[in-house]
Write a protein that binds this DNA or RNA. Structure first.
Length: 589
RNA sequence: GCCCACGUAGCUCAGCCGGUAGAGCACGUUCUUGGUAAGGACGUGGCCAUGGGUUCAAAUCCCAUCGUGGGCUCCA
């Protein structure tokens, strides 16, 4: 979910990446001055900046960052040249004798590889380079050390934990400031903050981590999402299923989940001496339904969807608002079809997914095609066919995609879609996965034209992914100012004085009768305060009613964009609003 | 799960070199009945996350647990 920040940045700068990498060296130099005993990990350039990992005698504090930053400024002002030097393995080992992590890297370098070191000032690092000419090329007012965090040495949770310092660096101060403003914007839109401010959802430590409570206003939005989702699925030839939340051990043994997915499942509960597990996935249940009958090729493809709530154990440290939770509702579906149908089905799923995303106002989508991993089941020929149909679907839809070599599940290849939000951040939501495993395990068959039993193809797909994560992304994408058709409150009646309350109530009822979500501000506040409150709640329409409106049967329409449409008849307003709602217009008010 | 930080009223936060709590907003009452982003007055509200320890005394110090945040690893 790394932010892609582009706002007016001149990327043509002579190698911003090199500059950032060099900055990480300068930072390491500063850290060594502060902590001569520090052990160095690695320090690459990353998107937006750089980091360096250190093994330090104590935890870093924000004050340390300031001191490090000040030392970096000194080094930059000193204009130390970067000096590249090739060394032999023995020399390298000697130079880094007291740097165990560097020694490990050196020892792992293949024989004959040229080992290079870079020096600047009295700092020395094992490094492939390249670097800038001298430290003075780093714009001294365009970098900032952002935060410290922990990271396992080489990303391995069994290895020591190092302290990582993240910094950001830009070609100019203006760009740095723009980037910092961008970070503030991200914070401002944070779904956890907006969820609280707009009274959409909550989480409760005393009631369990990673479990989401949808408040009335969040519930209204979810209902709209679900209603639309169901409508589109009906139109797309899907049937809707409802299945249990728990299943006997037999089910999960047969599916193989107890073998390969156990660490994500919760402990069983005992029911009449039998082990039951709460479901981490919906697929086995759908297959049970499939297997209740002898199936003919004539009834395929079957497209079975379910808003299925699943529970998965997630490590405590990874939980994050709505984005990563322990109980969530997938907009799941399984497509069961013949090998001949698979290609059309895949293409259709992809189209369907894209149109759904566009309907919610997400236009930019990137696809990832994940291929056969080392350890996989299913004949290579079927993998190849499956992969081809996935690839052809991507080409047919013209979506940019990258191949994730070996990134497929062991039971089949898949397409994942990442959706870009309004701030350019990517979110992995959609997944379309082949499954060569479950049809075998559950011995799913259909009778073909030839009267023989055949194994159907099965595809899992979740388009929005989970309703919780989708909601989180939706909140951040719109910064809480939801499109009219999704807004929990579409219009608020604002009576100027108490004597206008009855008229406001009457108008409100007319809006409700027209299918709108409207309410009257019954507080004792003055009109200005009522407008402010509605504005902060990002309510699309503020309908001010006073003597003038009450006597003429009108409402004065103010939009959350601050635009004032003036007075219009209630009928005209209803026409305008209901037309936009029916059209599911994501922008107009 | 791991490392670090944090957990005080519904919300945002102050208090924390130990002497049993404070602000703004929200909420309630009340005066005001006001034309497009905060009218005034008064008031309610906290077992200072939970459990244990140190101390004459703990919101303040120590430990543990739970949770949250930033990361690592992993995923919808």
């Amino acid at each position: 979910m790394g932010g892609h920040f582009e706002g007016g940045i001149s990327m043509s700068q002579p190698d911003l990446e090199t500059m950032r990498h060099s900055a990480s060296h300068v930072m390491a130099e500063a850290v060594l001055k502060l902590f001569p005993e520090a052990k160095l990990g690695i320090g690459p350039a990353i998107e937006d900046g750089f980091y360096y990992d250190f093994d330090l005698p104590r935890a870093l504090t924000p004050e340390d960052l300031e001191r490090i930053s000040a030392l970096m400024v000194e080094s930059i002002k000193a204009r130390h040249p970067f000096i590249r030097q090739e060394v032999s393995r023995e020399e390298a080992l000697a130079l880094f004798a007291n740097q165990p992590y560097k020694l490990e890297l050196i020892r792992e370098m293949p024989e004959g590889e040229v080992i290079t070191i870079y020096r600047h000032g009295d700092f020395l690092d094992l490094c492939r380079g390249p670097h800038i000419e001298h430290t003075g090329q780093i714009p001294v007012d365009a970098f900032k050390l952002l935060n410290t965090a922990a990271a396992y040495w080489r990303g391995d949770e069994k290895r020591p934990m190092l302290q990582r310092i993240y910094g950001t660096l830009w070609p100019s101060r203006e760009e740095l400031l723009a980037y910092l403003a961008h970070l503030e914007e991200i914070e401002r839109r944070d779904h956890r903050r907006l969820g609280k401010e707009l009274d959409l959802f909550s989480l409760h430590e005393e009631a369990g981590a990673g479990l989401v409570y949808w408040h009335p206003k969040g519930g209204r939005i979810r209902q709209q999402v679900e209603d639309f989702w169901r409508q589109r699925h009906r139109e797309g030839g899907y049937e809707i299923l409802y299945t249990p939340h728990i299943g006997r051990a037999w089910l999960w043994e047969t599916s193989g989940h107890l073998g390969f997915y156990r660490e994500s499942m919760y402990s069983p509960m005992d029911i009449d001496g039998q082990d039951y597990y709460i479901k981490p996935m919906n697929c086995p249940f759908h297959i049970m339904i499939y297997n209740t009958q002898r199936r003919s090729y004539r009834e395929l493809p079957l497209r079975w969807a379910e808003l299925g709530t699943v529970y998965r154990y997630e490590k405590s440290g990874v939980l994050h608002g709505l984005m990563r939770v322990r109980g969530f509702t997938q907009d799941d579906a399984h497509i069961i079809c013949t090998p001949e149908q698979i290609e059309d089905e895949i293409l259709e799923v992809l189209r369907f997914s894209l149109s759904l995303w566009r309907a919610f106002g997400f236009e930019e989508i990137q696809a990832y095609l994940a291929t056969r991993p080392e350890k996989a089941i299913g004949e290579p020929a079927r993998w190849e066919q499956a992969l081809q149909s996935l690839r052809r679907a991507l080409l047919a839809e013209g979506i940019p995609y990258e191949v994730d070599e070996g990134g497929g599940a062991f039971y089949g290849p898949k397409i994942d879609l990442k959706i870009k939000d309004a701030l350019g951040r990517e979110w992995q939501m959609t997944t379309i996965q082949f499954d060569f495993n479950l049809p075998e395990r559950f011995d799913m068959v259909y009778i073909g034209e030839d009267g023989q039993e055949h194994r159907p193809y099965m595809v899992h797909r979740a388009l929005l992914g989970s309703l919780e994560r989708f909601f989180g992304v939706l909140i951040e994408h719109y910064a809480g100012a939801f499109p009219l058709w999704l807004a929990p409150v579409q219009a608020r009646l604002i009576p100027i004085a108490d004597r206008h309350m009855a008229y406001a109530q009457e108008v409100c009822q007319r809006l409700a009768a027209a299918g709108m979500r409207a309410e009257v501000d019954r507080s004792g506040d003055r009109m200005n305060a009522k407008i402010r409150a509605a504005q902060l709640e990002k309510i699309p329409y503020m309908l001010v009613v006073g003597d003038r409106e009450a006597s003429s049967g009108q409402v004065s329409v103010r939009l959350r964009t601050n635009e004032d449409l003036g007075a219009m008849s209630v009928e005209a307003f209803i026409q305008r609003a209901t037309a936009l709602i029916a059209a599911r217009d994501n922008r107009a008010l």
